[in-house]
Write a protein that binds this DNA or RNA. Structure first.
Length: 429
DNA sequence: TCTGGGGTCCTAGGACCC
DNA sequence: TCTGGGGTCCTAGGACCC
């Protein structure tokens, strides 16, 4: 075995309450106030500051159930402003990239850094330097966990954020620190162990990460928790199972779905919403330079409401791979004809693109019609204009022109501080 | 009135083939 | 008379993550 593989140093950098921190950046008056950010349609909390967590608002909680508590405690509540968050995310990632050539952007607010080879004695100090630099350059506070594997870095990161003594940086490279950290980490808090697995683990007497690491019957773990469970166990032992993916890979499936602002009854409006989601999905498809061979849709009523329920999904294979918005919309509409039933109160629609292939490498269809050069040019031009002039400046007419019932409600949205000239913060003089 | 959106990976089991 | 065995591919569904 390669001895270097066992002496890896992985750091996980994770932004604190990321969406809330982004909102706070442009509102210094909110520095000490609890903040919450809501999902689309102002439905549920998707980001909360510590102050809001302390008020007992759980992750994913419906806003309307906690509105009173928020009002009473002067909570600043925002509609999600994703263009702001992705913009800030880019800035954070660019800053991190200055500290190592080997980095994996894991999500909008997290990145793994490979710091292998650096002096272990000074690694914590180095991490503090990373943390301070990110905060100085972007204004976003982060926590950093350090370990031999991704799973261990995750555990260290949790402690870095939770235990104030460590001021946002914690390492489990040291044997004793690691054993204690694993002992103090509940099994359900281990990365990759969800609710179902945590329950099953407890039946086996495994209540914390240390017990999983030291569990003797590897075969039983494999059998009950699949290969993934075994890999998590090995990662806890310091053996790398989840490799470092530096290059972001092309998506194998692209989804676009929204809950409607108000219920929709007519097929006409469903068609509009689906055309709109198909356009967004196709745009993502072209952005990663891919084509798709499979198109699917899904529609459903509101399961939280006591009304007649209907939910149906359907998908189909195209005769030739495509990235043409118009072809994708056409197929979605054909599918809608197949599953639409009149008389229901629809609340959500989804469009999915599957069997995704690289646009250059895809097989030429034997029978179907491939995208022509003209089609591709039109799509590219549309994307270019939308990128430059703002989202949905140009769209296919099928998406509709009026703000119909299905449009999202976003009452509490902050201005586009970083992406719209007209909404830049104003300085009083 | 009112409950998000976008992904990945794994496995069991059926279909099919020789 | 009396019904093999092994391999591969595909899909649906489950579980998990942020």
């Amino acid at each position: 075995m390669n001895p270097a593989a066992q002496n890896k140093i992985i750091a996980l950098v994770d932004c604190n309450s990321f969406y809330c921190s982004c909102e706070r950046l442009f509102r210094p008056d909110l520095k000490l106030r609890p903040i919450g950010v809501l999902s689309n349609n102002d439905g549920c909390f998707v980001s909360r500051t510590n102050e809001l967590k302390k008020l007992g608002v759980p992750m994913g909680a419906p806003y309307f159930q906690f509105k009173k508590i928020c009002d009473q405690n002067k909570v600043a509540v925002f509609s999600a402003n994703f263009s702001l968050y992705t913009n800030m995310s880019d800035r954070v990632m660019n800053t991190l990239f200055q500290f190592t050539p080997s980095m994996e952007v894991y999500s909008v607010d997290e990145a793994f850094l490979d710091l292998t080879g650096l002096d272990e004695k000074t690694i914590v100090a180095y991490a503090h330097q990373i943390k301070e630099t990110v905060e100085r350059h972007t204004g976003i506070p982060v926590g950093i966990g350090i370990g031999r594997t991704k799973v261990l870095a995750k555990i260290a990161n949790r402690i870095a954020k939770k235990d104030e003594r460590y001021q946002g940086v914690f390492s489990v490279l040291d044997h004793q620190a690691r054993e204690k950290a694993l002992h103090d980490t509940e099994i359900g808090d281990v990365w990759g162990i969800g609710r179902q697995s945590a329950l099953k683990m407890k039946i086996l007497g495994i209540r914390n990460a240390l017990q999983l690491k030291d569990y003797k019957n590897d075969l039983l773990i494999q059998k009950q928790f699949t290969k993934v469970g075994r890999m998590i166990q090995d990662e806890l032992r310091g053996i790398t199972c989840f490799p470092f993916n530096e290059a972001s890979e092309a998506k194998k499936q692209i989804l676009c779905s929204r809950t409607f602002g108000s219920p929709v009854y007519s097929k006409l409006l469903l068609r509009e919403s689906i055309a709109s989601y198909a356009s967004l999905a196709a745009e993502k498809l072209r952005k990663q330079n891919s084509v798709c061979l499979e198109v699917g849709i899904y529609i459903r009523t509101n399961p939280h409401k006591e009304i007649p329920q209907y939910a149906k999904e359907i998908s189909s294979l195209l005769s030739a791979p495509t990235a043409d918005t118009r072809k994708i919309i056409r197929e979605c509409w054909r599918l809608l004809d197949e599953i639409f039933v009149n008389g229901f109160e629809y609340k959500k629609a989804l469009v999915s693109l599957g069997r995704i292939q690289d646009a250059e490498e895809h097989q030429i269809a034997l029978f179907g019609q491939n995208d022509s050069v003209e089609d591709l040019l039109l799509m590219k031009t549309m994307d270019k204009i939308n990128l430059k002039e703002g989202h949905e400046m140009i769209k296919v007419a099928a998406c509709g022109t009026k703000k119909e019932a299905w449009y999202m409600k976003q009452v509490l949205k902050s201005p586009r501080f970083v992406s719209g000239w007209s909404e830049l913060p104003k300085i009083q003089s």
